[in-house]
Computed example of a mutant assay.
Amino acid sequence: MNRLLARGSVLAAAVLAIPGIIAVSPASAVETCTTTGNAKPIFLPGTRPDTIVSVPVCLETLSGDKARGKILFHWELINDGQSDMASKRFNSFQVITRLESREPGGSDTVVKSATCDFTDILNSNVPDDPRVPIGCQSPSAALEPGKQWSGDATAVYDIAGDGLGPITWKLAGSPSLNR
């Protein structure tokens, strides 16, 4: 079996094994998150280990009638036995997470946002534990009545050595909450 075909088979199996959501929140917080569509294998050039990234996007409601946008960042390196685990894999990998609101019939408006940088984590030799997500959240805001609220996010990453520059990955947003 050639190396590319073997890599694709391992990645397909690994993507299916990534849990949709792993969330640990304070007792007063409630999360509603995407469950599909935000996982992808990223094929890296040369002998770098391919990487699987999964980024559920959530709306987290907090006490005091507040909410924030949140992501849960999961990753896994695929070592096929031929990979250079010490190699640089990404020039950059950032996720912008947003809390958005919408008037009925209107379009989304960004209320709060935050950018988290996962470059160093993805370039580390071995992930701490790919089953435990790293959270990234926007600041919280008061929920205004009469609006729909959701969490949304975009990942922007640049693979080292592929010559393509930054790639934008629009993630599927959380389910909406009506207030």
Rank of each mutant, 00 (worst) to 15 (best):
G69T: 02
D108M: 12
T36R: 14
R48N: 10
R102W: 00
T35V: 15
P49D: 01
S113V: 01
R98L: 10
T51C: 10
G81R: 12
G46Q: 08
A67W: 03
T51G: 02
D84T: 13
E76V: 09
G106Q: 11
L77Y: 05
N38I: 07
D50T: 05
I96M: 13
E103H: 07
R98G: 08
C58S: 03
S107Q: 15
R98P: 12
R48G: 03
G106F: 08
V110P: 11
K88E: 13
T36D: 11
P49K: 03
S83I: 07
V53H: 05
A67D: 05
S107H: 13
G106D: 07
I96Q: 15
S54V: 01
P56A: 03
C58R: 06
T109V: 14
T51S: 08
K70A: 11
P104N: 09
E103P: 02
S83E: 08
L59E: 07
V111G: 06
T36G: 09
R98M: 15
S87R: 12
C58I: 05
F43E: 12
E60Y: 00
E60T: 14
P49V: 02
K40T: 13
P104A: 11
F73M: 06
A67F: 03
L44G: 12
I71P: 04
S83A: 15
P104R: 11
T61L: 07
E76K: 15
F43L: 10
N38W: 07
D108C: 10
D80W: 03
G106P: 06
G81T: 12
L62D: 04
D65W: 01
K66N: 13
R98K: 15
N38A: 07
P56D: 04
V55Q: 08
S63D: 02
L72R: 15
W75I: 02
V57Q: 03
G69Q: 09
L62R: 11
S63L: 03
L59V: 05
K66W: 02
G106Y: 07
I96L: 13
S83G: 09
P45C: 04
V53N: 04
D84E: 13
K70C: 05
N79C: 02
T47I: 01
F43Y: 15
K88F: 00
D108G: 13
F93S: 12
S87M: 09
K40C: 03
R48P: 02
V110Q: 13
L59Q: 07
E60R: 15
S63E: 04
S92D: 08
R102S: 06
E76C: 01
S113A: 13
R48E: 01
R48L: 01
P56Y: 07
V53W: 04
P49C: 01
D65E: 06
G81E: 00
G81M: 04
S54D: 13
A114V: 09
T47W: 01
L44S: 08
T36S: 14
V55Y: 08
V111Q: 05
T97C: 14
N79W: 01
T97S: 14
T36W: 07
A114T: 09
R68D: 00
F90K: 13
W75F: 01
G46N: 06
L72W: 03
H74R: 13
S54N: 15
A67P: 10
T47N: 15
L77W: 00
S87C: 08
S63T: 13
T51H: 00
C58D: 05
K70F: 00
V111S: 06
P45Q: 06
F93G: 12
R68A: 02
K40Q: 14
G105V: 11
S87H: 08
R68Y: 02
S107C: 02
